[in-house]
Each structure stands twice: as C-alpha cells, then as structure tokens.
C-alpha cells in the first residue's frame, strides 16, 4: 500500500503548451475573445497618437511662427539678410526655436568665432550670464548691435555699451503655458473616454472567456478527474488570456497607431507631421498600449479562471453542455 502523497502543481511551461494548443485549435473562439482587445487598444492607441501629433504639430507651428518673428527683428536691424555677415554666439543650450531661426538665417553669412565686420551679433542659448568674450567680440563690430534671446541675461561690464535688443523669450513661455493648459483640458475629456472604452474591453473579454469556460465544462472536469489541481486550471486560463491579450493589443496598437497617423497626416501635412513627430514617444506609447492591453486581459480573466478552477471534477461525468 502506497502512502497518499500531495499532488504537485505542474509548471508554467506545461500549462503554456496546453493553452497554446487550445488557442490554435479553437481559433474562431480565440478571434472573438481577441477582437474586444483589438478594438479597445486600437481606440486607445489612436487617441494617444492623435494627441502626440496634435501637440507636436501645434508646438512646431508655434516655434516656426516665433522663429519667423525673430527673423523679422533681425531683418529690421540689417535689412535683407542674404549674404549679410551676422555673428552668432551660442551661450548655453539652443532652444528648438533658436535652431529654427538659425535655419532661417542660412542665406546670411553666419560667423561663429568672430564679429569682425558683422552688422549684427546674435546671442542665443539659455545661459543666465552673457559670455565673457562678448566685449572682445563687439569691439570689432562696426555697429555694435546685439540681439539677445533672453530678456534678463546679465552682461559683463564693458559689454553694456552695446545697443541691445531683446528677443521675446517670455512671450514664448507664455504661449507654451497656454498650449499646455489647453492640452490638459482636452486630455481630461479624452482620458475619460479612454477609461470607459477600456472598461468595456475588459467586460467584453471577461464575457468571452466565461463563454469559453462554460463550453469547456466537461474538459475542465475531465482534467480534474485526471489529477489536475485547481491552480493548474486557473493558470491555464490566465495564460490563454494573456497570450490572446498580448496578440490582440499588438494588432490593436498597430491598427490604431498607423490609422491615426495616416488620418492626422492627411489632415495636416505629412511633411509637417513627419518633421514634428516625436517618434520615440510614439513608440513608447505603443509599447505602453500593448502592456496595458495584456494587463487588462489578465485582469478580465481572473473571474472566469477562478470560476473554471472551482469546478468540481464530477461535472465531467454527465454534463451535456
């Protein structure tokens, strides 16, 4: 006579294999389960993409506008810029606007290290202090006009005698602030819609899985008769759901992201969108959507999986489902 032992929980790999087999064979049912996730995540991703593009395009337009305004100021000092010698000092980090300004200034003769013969000196960058070399640089200038991008940048004594105009760094900040506030208001509404749609997704997946469990009553009971532990059954359904969820979120993310990109690209201009699009951020939000979809699918599977795991083995005997 053998002693009674304790049944050991089968490993993850075995459960994964059985779950994958099940998904493959019951492909039609798996597609139904997946479709909810695909729709929900596609909606989420298209919203995220839309937000990213809208924000990027708006700030790109703004920057372009500001850069053009800066260019007008330069032009009001020196006239047409083509071929004019203009000296540039980069003092600290360049803002995107300043980079755009430099691009717009490309027709002029830009000189970095010397101001000799220059009609104008541009001080760019975000440092609080003006560069020490300023006095030396301006000494060689014929007109000694300096345009500075920062209003309250401190100048060394000796450089103070230059005629100094200031760009509108502050105005720029004000505009950015307004833009941010508008974005927050907008995103509050979209966030609410996204949350509701994801909830619907979870309920849909949960429902599809519950159907799947009731269809498999006899199979689950049989497995329990053969010695499967409740944990194993639960794991089986959780794995099935997470695999389906991940596949569905991947498909949904691709569909939602690309569709949204095409639609927004067509309604603005593709060139503008391509130039302003933060692709890194886009990819990160795509990954976040996949992770969110997978997690939500697992969340949706908790109740059906527990329901399946609680089934008594005797239900394998005569259920006629």
């Amino acid at each position: 006579m053998e002693k009674i032992g304790k049944q050991v929980h089968l490993g993850f790999r075995r459960a994964l294999r059985i779950a994958m087999q099940g998904i493959r064979i019951r492909f039609g049912r798996s597609l139904v389960t997946i479709s909810g996730v695909v729709l929900g995540i596609a909606f989420l991703m298209s919203n995220l993409t839309g937000q990213i593009i809208q924000k990027a395009v708006a700030s790109e337009r703004d920057q372009r506008q500001t850069a053009t305004l800066m260019l007008t100021m330069v032009q009001s000092e020196v006239g047409a810029i083509a071929g004019k010698p203009i000296a540039v000092i980069v003092n600290g980090k360049l803002s995107p606007v300043e980079e755009k300004l430099l691009l717009l200034l490309a027709p002029a003769k830009l000189q970095r290290d010397t101001a000799a013969g220059a009609a104008l000196l541009l001080v760019l960058g975000d440092a609080r202090e003006a560069p020490a070399s300023l006095a030396a640089l301006t000494a060689a200038m014929s007109q000694r006009v300096v345009l500075d991008a920062v209003r309250d940048r401190r100048y060394m004594p000796g450089a103070a005698d230059v005629r100094r105009e200031v760009f509108f760094g502050e105005e720029l900040e004000q505009q950015e602030k307004e833009l941010r506030e508008k974005a927050i208001q907008q995103s509050f509404r979209t966030r609410w819609i996204i949350v509701v749609s994801l909830l619907v997704t979870v309920i849909g997946v949960s429902n599809a899985l519950l159907m799947s469990v009731t269809e498999r009553f006899r199979e689950i009971g049989t497995m329990k008769c053969l010695g499967a532990l409740s944990q194993f059954i639960r794991m089986l359904f959780l794995i099935e759901s997470s695999v389906l969820g991940m596949a569905g979120s991947l498909i949904g993310t691709l569909i939602g992201g690309l569709l949204s990109f095409v639609v927004y690209g067509a309604s603005y201009q593709f060139g503008l969108v391509m130039e302003s699009m933060p692709f890194g951020l886009w990819i990160v939000s795509g990954l976040a959507s996949v992770v969110a979809g997978t997690l939500l699918s697992v969340l949706a599977a908790i109740y059906p999986a527990t329901f399946a795991a609680r089934m008594v083995p005797a239900s394998a005997l005569r259920s006629t489902v």
Binding site: G5, K6, L229
Partner: peptide, 9 residues
Amino acid sequence: PFELAWLRC
C-alpha cells in the same frame, strides 16, 4: 484538495 488530486491521478 492536493491529496485528493493525487489520489484521483
């Protein structure tokens, strides 16, 4: 439950 599963198995 673990012993029952073992027995059934």
